[in-house]
Design a protein around this nucleic acid. Sequence first.
DNA 1: CCGGGAACTTACCCTGGGGTCACTTACCCT
DNA 2: AGGGTAAGTGACCCCAGGGTAAGTTCCCGG
Lengths: 201, 201
Amino acid sequence: MSSGAAIGTKGVPRAEREEQIVAEAIAEFAESGYAGASMVEIARRAGISKPLIYQYFGSKDGLFLACLHQVSGGLLARLEDAELEVDDSVASRIYPLRAIFEALDPQPHAWRLLFDPSMPASGEIAVAAREYRTRTTELAASGSTRFLAARGITSPADASALSAVWMGVVDSIVEWWLAHPEESADQMTERCYRLLGAITG
Amino acid sequence: MSSGAAIGTKGVPRAEREEQIVAEAIAEFAESGYAGASMVEIARRAGISKPLIYQYFGSKDGLFLACLHQVSGGLLARLEDAELEVDDSVASRIYPLRAIFEALDPQPHAWRLLFDPSMPASGEIAVAAREYRTRTTELAASGSTRFLAARGITSPADASALSAVWMGVVDSIVEWWLAHPEESADQMTERCYRLLGAITG
DNA sequence: CCGGGAACTTACCCTGGGGTCACTTACCCT
DNA sequence: AGGGTAAGTGACCCCAGGGTAAGTTCCCGG
């Protein structure tokens, strides 16, 4: 048989294979969460067998970590840039939103990896995730504190709550995007601009 | 030994035991999600052994279903009442928030059961969860449509997105509450009132 | 006093999924 | 041509966790 899965090498170099495995793994992790994702299912998606993944990534944790770094790297960098453009107005919140939509454009569902609740609570993954989450949270928090201070509210608890809410807004709008894949990143940005306007009226 | 787990009945009537099991199960499901929750761990929390749970609830699905009904029943009823008081203003959104805080007061983390992503996607659980989610979503959606219409926006997609965002806001503020358990339901309501005021300026 | 049922447990089965071993095939370099 | 190495696989081990069978203790009604 010339077609179908055969034994022996298929001539795909390691770097290329790794890239492909990570892409499929991101999709599977996003759909099923860390706990629910199955290594053999990821292998099936990539058209290879399980041991090859273990040879390249060592463990499920190793694979997830690779996915996490790929997803978070670009996203966080863009976000930190965008946050510099935010001022005291609600409307200026559009900048970080646009940054997120553009960074996520190739694989919007990658977003879910960052806040996967079924991720292990200790170990290398937890450390890396905590690092990324801390950076994200601090961005939201500093913005919220400034926003409230400009309106005469200085309670740290209020700032903390508003920061949490803002992150919830971002999360839910990205989830909405996942449910409406026909929408482009630009369209999402416009839509959010319109909604922000309506709310601040 | 007079103390410790012994064989044979302990004289606790079925109704009482079931109530206690459901309470512990809600806590475990909320902490670990459906997929991550362990039946033997729930049994350990309740101070009994696993087969008793199976005798009373039949399966993990059956137990989760019982928890879901208990959580959603009261919550949805209150929410539907509160939605009647909402008008076109942002500020009136405080009513459903208050209803949620009050309904959740005894076990705030119960909130997580409703939107647990690791819940099975088919079967009786999926049907029940979909029913509850649909009712919740429709409440949010009708409010959003009205809100936008009052501001001259009639796009159904905008209404759908705003509805998703509003649900995200609710979810994140409840999660913030879970992280700050010293807060009472009344304090949460006041805090939200203040924040809504700041945003609408 | 005694039988039956409700309340409980110990010990077990079995599947699914993470992880490993030994082996095979193709390519490249001398 | 031939050997070394990278790419790739089928078959296996092992354990956690859902689910079950069979037995034990207590209480209550006749």
